[in-house]
Nucleic acid binder design. Structure first.
Lengths: 339, 339
DNA sequence: GCAGACATTGTTAGCGCTAACATAGACGGC
DNA sequence: GCCGTCTATGTTAGCGCTAACAATGTCTGC
């Protein structure tokens, strides 16, 4: 690299060094045809030599494309959303886009609007919103200033392109598995009512019971955290309402439940068969190892970006169809369900 | 909002609507003094009316400031880095910056360089690198194209501004607590050798033992994952080398260890007192509840951005001092250590 | 009532890049 | 050998914004 003359080199400097016009440099940079191989080599050498870097702002100004995708994520210690974000990032970068991220402290429609506003100021070309909650989904415009929006993890959303995991199918598989083991019915500790995933898991649980003609008690609603799983499970035991099988809406609450059962002398799986959801890395090492439902978050992120890029390329024509991609969930059987 | 005439309104449109020059619009937008209140109101009304949004590329082109901070994160299911990222995001947004994120699939120096290159192309003003591993730290230039770099979670780094948790202090507190309970020595299951945090925890463990004049067996090295905790703990039991107290370098491996002990009929805390590290949300609900060391990741993120912004404002003058901020860790005593 | 300071607004000139058009030479067919 | 076509390159004109300077008024003190 040549020592810069006090400021960053610009295209004109490269042009001068290579003995061509700045336009030819631009052509080389953008892979235009009709540049002599020898000229191209000279330009590339000059670029290398000067340590030239194209100015993205100048390019964006004239092309009207920033190459940035905005992501709205929820600030959460939850396993899923965090993994989804990295899936999105990899897919976006592979496609040559930059990623601008905003996280929400609270899932209110207002915060979603603020977040998208922040991203709009940066002139992002499109949005991916990780929207596991109804309130997030509702705060979301469909086209934010002409830029397309894709919801991820946003259950059965509005007329909006959505990519999500088949929560209902996963829940159904879990409950059917428990019923198949001979349980008369299966109880349910659900996630918070506002969460679409929680709702879909309730629906899957209910559907599996209905299909089997099994009775369904009202589910108990927790908040995803271990504490609520602990308390709700303890309540079931104390009130003598503990079913022979229990489907808990996520692994964290399932851990809480395990603990409550341990404290109360209720054996898992002998006295109660337990199934969780998420397949966190620890799940296989709980006592007993937790049967659970695994989700492919990386795939969700990839498809989310895929749908967005399609929309971007088609100029929104594809939005008519309101793509709805469903990634399958997978039951992982371990000891906690008794087989 | 008035219907746009087919294209996004620009500053000149606002100026026309408000009956002023575009420069006056610019002044209003940038909060310059010397604009009559009445004029300002007219301009703001026109902006609102037209739904005008300043073009960030054009502004960046002339000011040479993009307002973007680049973050290099590691792609990981680990609890800490994910939380740190959201801490960084909140602090950056509060300061009026945008955040561009790149995640690494693998912590190699090459990937770090690629990531920073990607961000440089976007003309970020500064970098925050979440660098829990030595290889990440080493792949990191100090000033990337004139932009300052701050390492976060990067243990005892090079002459680079660093913000990290007092891993050594946390480990030391944990081990001292165990020794204080009457144990002759404390064993250690460590994290991977390449990880600075793992190294610091080993150092803290060793130091506490030395200070107490207690013997130190060689630590066993895991990979942070539950499985390795399980296998190493099992090995200790099988080989009859299990100490009365064990410090495990993170909660995930501690869960694996708990499971191994359960399988082998080793009681916690009666036969072995156990302490983990991280304080994941589940820790209080393991059987027995896990004594562990909590880290304030949000604070780490905030301080990381704080240091970077200082550097940005001072034009790097502050880099001389190579800031090194240490966030304290906190021992959380639960049942697994026996008191 | 007038100089000088100050407040308010307008005008001009780029920032670094790409798109569109202009130009000049090379080539091939008849 | 001349014209049309194609290839390789240069020239010009902005993209939308801010900084610098210029040009007005407005007010103060004496």
């Amino acid at each position: 690299m040549a020592a810069p003359p006090g400021r960053m080199p610009v295209m004109a400097d490269v042009a001068r060094a290579a003995g061509v016009s700045h336009q030819t440099v631009s052509r080389v940079l953008n892979g235009h045809p009709n540049v002599r191989a020898e000229t191209q080599a000279r330009v590339l050498a000059a670029i290398e030599d000067l340590g030239y870097r194209p100015n993205s702002s100048a390019r964006a100004l004239v092309t009207r494309r920033t190459g940035v995708i905005g992501v709205v994520a929820v600030d959460t210690a939850h396993y899923g959303p965090a993994r989804t974000l990295t899936g999105i990032e990899h897919a976006a970068r592979a496609a040559g886009y930059y990623l601008s991220v905003v996280t929400l402290t609270e899932a209110s429609a207002e915060q979603v609007r603020d977040a998208m506003d922040h991203l709009a100021r940066q002139a992002v070309e499109g949005y991916v919103v990780i929207a596991p909650q109804r309130s997030v989904l509702e705060g979301m415009p469909e086209w934010a200033g002409g830029a397309p929006v894709v919801a991820v993890e946003g259950g059965e959303a509005r007329e909006l392109p959505v990519v999500c995991v088949d929560q209902e199918g996963g829940a159904r598989a879990a409950v059917r598995h428990l019923l198949g083991l001979g349980h008369r019915t299966v109880g349910h500790i659900a996630g918070p009512r506002d969460w679409l995933e929680a709702e879909a898991r309730v629906a899957g649980w209910r559907r599996a019971l209905e299909e089997a003609g099994a009775p369904a008690a009202e589910p108990l609603y927790g908040d995803w955290r271990p504490r609520s799983g602990y308390e709700l499970a303890r309540r079931l035991v104390q009130e003598g309402r503990l079913p022979g099988a229990l489907f808990v809406a996520n692994d964290q609450m399932a851990v809480g439940a395990l603990r409550a059962f341990g404290d109360a002398g209720v054996r898992v799986p002998e006295d109660v068969a337990l199934v969780g959801f998420d397949d966190v890395p620890e799940a296989a090492y709980y006592a007993p190892p937790l049967t659970t439902v695994a989700q492919d978050f990386g795939e969700v992120g990839r498809r989310g970006i895929g749908v967005l890029l399609d929309l971007l390329e088609s100029g929104g024509a594809a939005a008519e169809s309101a793509a709805r991609e469903v990634v399958p969930a997978r039951l992982v059987v371990r000891a906690s369900c008794g087989a």
